[in-house]
């Protein structure tokens, strides 16, 4: 179908975007980034905002750069632009592998990292990666910037800590040049969204796991850390046995009432899959630890 009518404004700077949001505060307003979540919802008639503020072309929101110990990613950086930057894989390997699996070729050419995180689709590939990489989401509003840890950013289906007058401007990932990352995903055969996706970033030193963070999407109504897995692996040697033990604890502490259950998979099956895909993600980490510098 076709979108309902709306007013369209293109912002050329962050401050202009914030001003526009202020001007249209009384109306139902949506920010338009790549549009690959919003436009399908509008075309299906599910979403009918009065005003769209297009921030896709805001120059200052594009680009990936290393700033000291931080990889800083402009919110409107497309997936494909992110993948194309060497520093992405080097400093945020887990995020890099997750981004490679978002959508398809065309979606990756248009969709943006900031748009994805702000939309907070629980079945998207990035919430888990944001958690696994310990990302900080920078949101900007009339009162300036706010920095929100990924751990505090997602709190429900399509629900985040972004205020109505704010936008995501940047994602900051602590550089993890020594770490390896992996993302194992069971895509829905129809939509390609994650029925379950597990993202791991770990540092393995001499066979021992020194740091590990594991995030999952698709399982719960928002991205979650798999703390049982982290707990099991921290300080252990990474091998078949520890991976199996960690995978067994994948769904530990997850609130089953808030688990996703739909046509694609029941909550019960997701609980099973989160273990399987945790194992697969960890096996890839193990592989990559054994043979570093394997390039895509």
């Amino acid at each position: 179908m076709f979108p309902d009518e709306f007013d369209y404004h293109e912002a050329t700077s962050v401050s202009e975007a914030i001003d526009l949001m202020g001007e249209h505060a009384g109306a139902e307003t949506e920010l338009l980034a790549g549009g690959h979540s919003l436009l399908p919802a509008m075309k299906s008639g599910l979403s009918s905002p009065d005003v769209l503020i297009d921030i896709g072309e805001v120059e200052e929101l594009h680009g990936v750069e290393v700033d000291g110990d931080t990889l800083s990613i402009g919110a409107m950086t497309t997936y494909s632009d992110f993948i194309a930057e060497d520093v992405s894989e080097e400093h945020a390997p887990a995020l890099y592998h997750a981004v490679r699996q978002v959508g398809d070729t065309q979606v990756r050419n248009r969709g943006t990292l900031g748009g994805n995180l702000a939309h907070a689709d629980p079945a998207s590939d990035l919430p888990g990666a944001a958690l696994a990489t310990d990302a900080t989401i920078v949101v900007t509003g009339p009162d300036g910037e706010r920095r929100v840890s990924a751990d505090d950013f997602f709190f429900g289906m399509y629900a985040t800590d972004i205020g109505p007058d704010e936008l995501v401007t940047r994602v900051e990932v602590p550089s993890a040049a020594d770490a390896v990352g992996a993302y194992a995903k069971k895509p829905s055969p129809s939509s390609g969204y994650a029925m379950v996706g597990v993202c791991v970033q770990a540092t393995v030193d001499g066979g021992t796991v020194t740091t590990v963070r594991v995030g999952a999407n698709g399982v719960m109504d928002h991205g979650v850390r798999l703390e049982g897995v982290e707990d099991e692996l921290a300080g252990e040697s990474l091998d078949e046995d520890s991976i199996a033990a960690a995978a067994d604890r994948a769904s530990e502490g997850l609130d089953t009432a808030m688990m996703m259950s739909d046509l694609q998979a029941s909550a019960e099956f997701r609980e099973q899959l989160v273990g399987t895909y945790t194992r697969r993600a960890l096996e890839r980490v193990l592989d990559r630890t054994a043979t570093p510098a394997a390039a895509d």
């Binding site: 399908p40 299906s44 829905s188 055969p189 129809s190 939509s191 046509l263």
Partner: peptide, 11 residues
């Protein structure tokens, strides 16, 4: 319930 290609899996 499978009213779009998002939910009906065309291979």
């Amino acid at each position: 319930m499978t009213g779009s290609m998002q939910d009906y899996a065309v291979p």
